[in-house]
């Protein structure tokens, strides 16, 4: 017996990518769908992702953005410290808060911050940033394996899945495996326009992860972002696959790899 899960990272209002990812996941024969949080941000028409999540019974974890929108806080709690990054983050936050309807806000408020699954004798912890902090950035190049082992030890799980950084990665440590599932909301700063989701195949023998690229109608998304008056810098990212904001949180290696 093997169970296949689809794990979606931040959606950031990119309902077109979510639609494409759901279709791709269905074609892969996925048994259950999960979203690891940050349903809003960045893109247009915040209410459009929700019907897709409800209809397909996507089980959602609360990200920092969802906590902020659900509780109508002043900002997104993304954890940026650069003034320019914060300036742009605030534009998308104010837009998303204003345009998310009351029912959807209530839904966001009701979400749990983490979820532990027990499937085929494997224990899997789903969270947004890290098991200890919703908005912690766990980058591949700044997260030692012995640091992750503290979580595997404390939480007695075999696998931890998170998102938040926007760039997927996977590591086996001596006590378990960690997977950052990537995001659907915007491309990975690798000069390609596609986005990513992850599947886990879970059996008694172990957990196998796979990353899947998602191609979607980014021209349409760009047009809609323009219509909604969202910043040109965001549209440029969708069009070129290169980040124009939120760069200051990137560590040396991720930044260097992507030639910034």
């Amino acid at each position: 017996m093997s169970v296949r899960l689809a794990l979606f990272g931040g959606i950031y209002n990119n309902y077109l990518a979510l639609e494409a990812a759901l279709e791709a996941a269905k074609a892969l024969g996925v048994d259950e769908y999960y979203c690891l949080g940050d349903i809003g941000a960045f893109g247009p028409f915040p209410n459009r992702s929700f019907p897709l999540l409800y209809e397909n019974q996507v089980h959602c974890i609360q990200g920092n953005y969802d906590d902020s929108i659900g509780n109508q806080l002043d900002n997104c709690q993304c954890g940026y410290t650069d003034p320019r990054d914060n300036y742009f983050a605030q534009i998308s936050y104010d837009y998303t808060l204003e345009n998310t309807n009351a029912d959807n806000q209530k839904f966001l408020q009701s979400l749990e911050k983490e979820h532990v699954l027990e499937i085929e004798e494997q224990r899997i912890l789903l969270c947004h940033g890290s098991p200890r902090k919703t908005n912690e950035f766990l980058w591949e190049s700044t997260t030692p394996l012995h640091f992750l082992d503290i979580f595997f030890h404390q939480r007695e799980v075999d696998c931890i899945a998170g998102t938040h950084t926007g760039i997927k990665w996977h590591a086996n440590t001596s006590l378990g495996q960690f997977v950052n599932v990537g995001v659907l909301g915007r491309p990975e700063n690798d000069s390609t326009t596609n986005v990513w989701f992850t599947t886990l195949d879970i059996s008694r023998d172990g957990i196998q992860h796979n990353f899947h690229p998602v191609v979607y109608d980014y021209d349409r998304l760009s047009r809609e972002m323009q219509m909604e008056g969202l910043p040109d810098e965001f549209i440029e990212t969708i069009q070129t696959g290169r980040w124009t904001t939120c760069l200051e949180v990137l560590p040396q290696k991720e930044r260097q790899r992507l030639n910034h």
């Binding site: 940026y80 410290t81 650069d82 003034p83 320019r84 200051e248 949180v249 560590p251």
Partner: peptide, 10 residues
């Protein structure tokens, strides 16, 4: 936020 690596923090 002293001593952290994130740029242009204060």
């Amino acid at each position: 936020a002293i001593c952290s690596n994130i740029s242009t923090g204060s």
